[in-house]
Write a protein that binds this DNA or RNA. Structure first.
Lengths: 354, 354
DNA sequence: TGTTTCAATAAAAACGTTTTTATTTTCCTT
DNA sequence: AAGGAAAATAAAAACGTTTTTATTGAAACA
């Protein structure tokens, strides 16, 4: 309404009709010229482009959308845990979105963000996006071991890229972090340092990458000829609160852990908070290895040894893959698994405080 | 393309034409009935709704968009600082988006996120959104003292809600935090505790709320009959890195500050990191008061006294205001300033470590 | 020279709505 | 019972594109 008001005052927004009147060509020719169709004569094309520039013509997205059936939207499902007390969570998503948006820059696609509260919500959102054609492509994360969204989208041939892999043997575009490898590396490092009682702070087990991490954890122990302490695997949401509670609970055990492998920056902060309030010192009483995707572990006191993978890079890859997928490219070519780099900030001779 | 494929297999998506054929009414009547226009007979309306439910009719957004000229998009400008080394920043935006999205739930509006890198980028994005009609309304933050976006949108009568206020005397919908009040309260608390050398960790001065905070800071000193130490106001981006550097620089001064007032959670973390690496203890050598909008200061070691305002609530209000603004409501009624609550986590008798 | 072929452009239809205008039906009123 | 008003519905136009089909004019061929 207000929008109309200011439109009325200035010259009406130019359309292909305007260009048709200006140049004397039909709107069909205008349309084809602007899309650089080879059927229109080069001289005409140039003329039409010139006119378009002159009046500052911008194709009307709504007209295009209706005719082509496309929405020119790239949808992203952004998980937000049901904010119990507004817990610190999902902080890395800003950078993920930034990365995706970078990839979309210069294209006709806009990024629409759909907030989801849980897995069921996410499945429903995906369904709606497909059915109503709300977007031409979809990006989502928090992949479950059995993820109904992947099943749906593969079945519907709907272009998507997932951040993470499910446990089913399907072909689909994805970007992931090698969680099995990272968990193995972190655990092996601690074992080499003499630790035997190592805790794994992990997400809920139905998340695919939770399983990956358990796999890596177990493999590290097996390779050392040891049994993995399965009872020291804590599962929960990835809030700071959860990290803190885990430390407090585990350190009351008779056979308490001497080291913690953390899953992300929020739980790491929680673990440090828990240790702090118990009076335990990191690097002296207990060792901690973090996983970090927003470069924050460097600022913890003390700085924490970390597997680091800037998530913005993942976001950028997600966006690039989605664009190519929407162009019809084979998902086989659109799969990439990143290995985070180890940033050692704690003394390497961990010494196993037993 | 792939989208078409799966469409072809099932029954074609129902449109008002489908409903017209089913019920025998014309598409005009169908349209009016679905919009609950009073001109259609109640009995017909019910009949048409029944048919719509039966086939699972969903209005085609593209058709509506073209005809009405609306986009059914609520745009949000999300600032992401040019990621120097992927610094931790903008973490609170996840919750802001969550809040906005909550408000939009159940309406026909979708949320599209436009990432902007700086103020100029933001102004350009706003311009594009208005000119191309990319959205029906706009939400943005990081308001400058003189913000060209506000000038533009007010002039164009384009519906928007800003998170923050500019320094010009204009009427527009906004949500803000009472930064003057918060900075005053924090500073006064420290002065009452005996501190005289208080540092203010602040954003760049061209941001409107940077000025608000300086105002509150100065007022607190003036009310105590003191001169504000203007040289202890640090200005920079709000990264963790900046917080850390500020502490390290200031504590080398001859007349070093004994307390820090921080602007957000990332700078607070940086300040704590800086203090930690200098071997200074919070609450013993130096006092710190934070501002927090994602409830994370509780987990710092030690927990920090904080002015807390959950940002998700602001997000929700932003969304609600935008909806009302897009309905044409007077912006006069759509202004709200929140006062954060003080959460004292450090001993109250600060004692002024001089 | 007349027919065919090809290149260039124009015309028309379509996408799914909403809205304005026109038509039909129903119900009063006299 | 006729006339008119009001209520209900239908028809048509429009929003700005793209795409399919049709038309024109010129070049090429026999």
């Amino acid at each position: 309404m207000a929008t109309e008001m200011h439109r009325a005052q200035r010259a009406p927004t130019p359309t292909i009709k305007t260009l048709a009147e200006m140049t004397g060509y039909s709107i069909a020719t205008i349309s084809k010229a602007l899309r650089e169709s080879p059927v229109v004569a080069p001289a005409t094309r140039d003329l039409i482009f010139k006119a378009a520039r002159e009046v500052g013509y911008q194709a009307n997205a709504r007209g295009m959308a209706l005719r082509t059936g496309k929405s020119f939207q790239a949808a992203v499902l952004m998980p937000v845990t049901a904010a119990r007390d507004y817990e610190w969570d999902g902080v890395e998503y800003t950078q993920t979105l930034s990365g995706i948006s970078q990839a979309l820059e210069g294209t006709d696609y806009r990024m629409s963000v759909h907030v989801i509260r849980d897995a069921a919500d996410g499945a429903e959102a995906a369904r709606r996006i497909v059915d109503q054609g709300l977007a031409d492509g979809l990006i989502f994360s928090g992949i479950l071991a059995e993820d109904p969204r992947i099943d749906l989208l593969v079945a519907e041939h709907f272009p998507f890229v997932s951040m993470g892999r499910c446990r089913k043997d399907l072909v689909y575009a994805h970007v992931d972090i090698d969680n099995e490898w990272a968990a193995h590396a972190a655990t092996a490092r601690l074992i080499a340092g003499g630790h035997r009682r190592i805790a794994l702070v992990n997400p809920e087990r139905r998340l695919s990458y939770a399983l990956d991490r358990v796999d890596g954890f177990v493999r590290a122990f097996r390779e050392a000829g040891l049994d993995a302490p399965m009872e020291l695997i804590a599962e929960g949401d990835l809030s700071t609160h959860f990290g803190r509670q885990t430390v407090i609970a585990f350190l009351q055990l008779d056979d308490a852990p001497t080291a913690f492998v953390c899953i992300n920056e929020s739980t790491t902060l929680g673990v440090l908070s828990g240790l702090g309030s118990l009076g335990r010192q990191v690097g002296v009483d207990v060792d901690v290895i973090a996983y970090d995707d927003i470069n924050v572990s460097a600022y913890f006191t003390p700085p924490i040894t970390t597997f680091y993978q800037p998530i913005e890079v993942l976001g950028r890859t997600l966006g690039q893959f989605l664009l190519r997928r929407m162009e019809g490219e084979d998902p086989k070519a659109l799969r990439q698994v990143f290995r985070p780099t180890l940033i050692a900030r704690q003394p390497d001779n961990l010494g196993g405080r037993l």
